[in-house]
Design a protein around this nucleic acid. Structure first.
Length: 267
DNA sequence: CCCCAGGCACAGA
DNA sequence: TCTGTGCATGGG
């Protein structure tokens, strides 16, 4: 079926560092494993995508995943002030990004692994975890991961994060965190998440943004730190707070895209 | 050999 | 509250 958004660009989302298991396909589309199935989806025109699922399936599962019909994006774009040329350009470059609403445990595990790590290696480590425990397509449950030994996890290339993952899996299961977290407010979720070993502010923010849909959240990583120093030495304007997560994604995408182009230029 | 990667825990001031 | 430092592992 065809779905029209006010703004969507699959390539931009795939490059935005939210999701580590999208697979690029031969037709230029993507295979997205989630909810125990695999959605095949491709861009057919600007802001239009075609997905190989029923309309019922789209509305019951995938619409929420893609944050469809959320008014925040249009409002966020409209709220960019003329005076901020950097954000204006970043938003223009990445305006097709959606903030995905991804499964909690997968997001938590992915971003624990992401710390002090690079995206290709994060992807590889998660792939191996899925092969060993989840059965290739499905992301392994916290019950399954919690039963693995630290040494087994370490052998997947997690390094010192193996202990974080194992302990997080056990506690996530014991706490029924997938039921608790969605009913928490932002401050509660932040306090709860950062009480996990291996989850600091940045990882907690990514979980809140990419799994709980808390669009005000503004995760600060090494890229964003550079951007803040370079373009916002006085701090981010207060007015940006309601759309912090969306602006953060625009900036992250834009900065990485510029870096990539700079490398290509040298070659 | 170096530095860096979507940081964090921990120690010490 | 705020520094600094070690950390597993792979890529450039």
């Amino acid at each position: 079926m065809l779905i029209t958004f006010d703004a969507i660009n699959l390539d931009q989302i795939a490059y935005s560092g939210q999701c580590f298991r999208w697979r690029k396909e031969g037709d230029g589309g993507y295979a997205i494993p989630c909810f125990g199935e695999v959605l095949h989806i491709r861009q057919t025109a600007e802001n239009i995508v075609e997905a190989d699922c029923s309309e019922e399936d789209w509305h019951s599962r995938w619409a929420a995943y893609f944050d469809a019909d959320c008014p925040d994006y249009a409002q966020a774009l409209a709220a960019v002030p003329e005076s901020d040329q950097y954000l204006m350009q970043a938003a223009q470059a990445g305006r097709g990004i959606r903030i995905l609403r991804q499964p909690l445990w997968e997001t938590m595990a992915s971003f624990i692994i992401s710390q002090n790590n690079n995206i290709p290696r994060i992807t590889k480590t998660l792939e191996r975890l899925c092969e060993v425990c989840g059965g290739a397509e499905a992301f392994p449950s916290p019950e399954c991961v919690g039963q693995m030994t630290e040494e087994q996890l370490r052998q997947l290339g997690m390094g010192y994060r193996a202990r974080y993952i194992q302990q997080a899996a056990r506690r996530f299961t014991a706490d029924r965190a997938d039921l608790l977290l969605p009913s928490m407010d932002e401050a509660q979720a932040q306090a709860y998440l950062t009480s996990y070993l291996g989850v600091g502010m940045k990882v907690a923010d990514c979980i809140r943004l990419f799994a709980l849909g808390q669009h005000r959240t503004f995760p600060v990583d090494t890229w964003i730190k550079r951007i803040l120093k370079e373009h916002y030495s006085q701090g981010l304007p207060e007015a940006y707070a309601p759309y912090g997560g969306i602006y953060q994604q625009y900036m992250f995408f834009y900065e990485r895209q510029c870096a990539k182009q700079a490398i290509r230029k040298r070659a």
